[in-house]
Amino acid sequence: MIQMYLVTFRLIPGAYDTEFHELNDAIQAAAEDTEGYLGKQTWHAPDSEAVLVVYYWESLDALESFGVDADHKRAKQRWTEWYDAYEVTITEVIETYGCGFGDDASPLA
């Protein structure tokens, strides 16, 4: 049986500035440096400004380890400066299967 957790970050973007991009890059680097980080995929809704980013994690421990990152905490406190809305959903994956997505498949598919 696979073990994987998805963190789905749904957002409506606001105005991004240089500080946002620098902080976003630092957060992504911290995620990639966290043991148990498996990857991410991003989708843009065709009928709205909504963006969906799905982060893949090997365990809740890995996710919690990333959650204490200082840049990540700072960004969470300042979300109103860069997003009009956001929602985070954490999901445990029971099963994943499929065919045809190649390199675009989920990390454990």
Rank of each mutant, 00 (worst) to 15 (best):
Q3S: 14
G98L: 02
T80G: 07
Y97V: 11
E81I: 03
I90R: 12
A29M: 03
F66W: 14
A26F: 02
E32C: 07
T80F: 04
L23N: 09
C99V: 12
L23T: 14
L6C: 11
D69V: 09
T96F: 00
T91M: 14
H44L: 06
A45R: 13
D25T: 09
I27E: 10
A70S: 14
G67T: 04
C99N: 07
S48E: 02
Y16R: 12
V7H: 11
F9H: 01
E49A: 09
W79P: 00
E95I: 05
V68P: 04
L63S: 04
G36W: 04
A70G: 05
T18C: 01
S65N: 11
T18S: 13
K73V: 13
N24E: 13
E49T: 08
I94Y: 10
T91D: 11
E58P: 03
E81D: 14
G98V: 03
F20Q: 04
A31S: 14
F20L: 09
A15D: 07
L38V: 01
I94W: 03
W79T: 15
A50M: 13
Y83N: 05
E22H: 08
A26C: 02
Y83F: 15
Y86I: 02
A105E: 12
E95Q: 12
G98P: 06
T8D: 02
E58L: 09
E92Y: 01
H21M: 08
A109G: 14
K40L: 13
M4S: 12
W43D: 13
D61A: 15
E19I: 05
D69F: 01
A26N: 09
K73A: 11
A70D: 14
I12G: 03
K73C: 04
F66D: 04
A85I: 00
E64Q: 15
H21G: 01
E58C: 03
A30F: 08
Y37G: 10
W82M: 09
A50N: 06
E87G: 10
A109M: 11
E32S: 12
L11F: 00
E35I: 02
